[in-house]
């Protein structure tokens, strides 16, 4: 697929930035003319991915979260959220619904939400190197442009 528009940003893994990240990406996605439900799906999935970076990847430490969003020529948005944190020992296990490696009232639903609300989810992770989550959502064209 051809990339027709792209933006990148990075930010500190501070929880106050969760709302900023989802607001920035949803604003970028607006050029695809999504429905309210589609934009809400994107915001929720992004929020889960960014929260994972803060809660799991960097834990007590602070690091950088790297976000790239691309508009593709098939009316899709592809979002990459990358950290240089601790990595995931067992990605399949981490993706199981209700699995959480920590207590603290985490529901263990982050990857389930990403999978359900987006069309494609890819997770690449290496211990002590970091994790990259790639999310893709197709936006149904609503009007003849």
């Amino acid at each position: 697929m051809k990339v027709i528009n792209k933006f990148s940003m990075n930010m500190v893994s501070c929880s106050a930035n969760e709302s900023f990240a989802r607001a920035a990406i949803s604003a970028f996605a607006l050029q695809l003319d999504p429905t309210i439900e589609e934009i809400s799906d994107i915001k929720t999935a992004v929020s889960e991915a960014v929260t994972n970076c803060i809660v799991h990847a960097y834990r007590e430490a602070t690091g950088k979260i790297y976000i790239t969003a691309e508009i593709l020529d098939n009316s899709s948005i592809r979002i990459r959220i990358k950290d240089r944190g601790c990595g995931i020992a067992d990605v399949n296990k981490a993706m199981e619904p209700l699995y959480s490696s920590i207590g603290d009232e985490r529901a263990g639903l982050g990857f389930s939400v990403m999978q359900t609300f987006m069309d494609k989810l890819t997770v690449r992770s290496k211990l002590d190197v970091g994790t990259t989550v790639t999310l893709v959502k197709h936006i149904s064209p609503r009007f003849v442009k």
Binding site: S47, E48, E105, L109, V113
Partner: peptide
């Protein structure tokens, strides 16, 4: 106006 799975943790708790 917005809720992710953190809200589920709040409810279950």
């Amino acid at each position: 106006t917005f809720m992710d799975s953190s809200g589920i943790g709040l409810i279950m708790g």
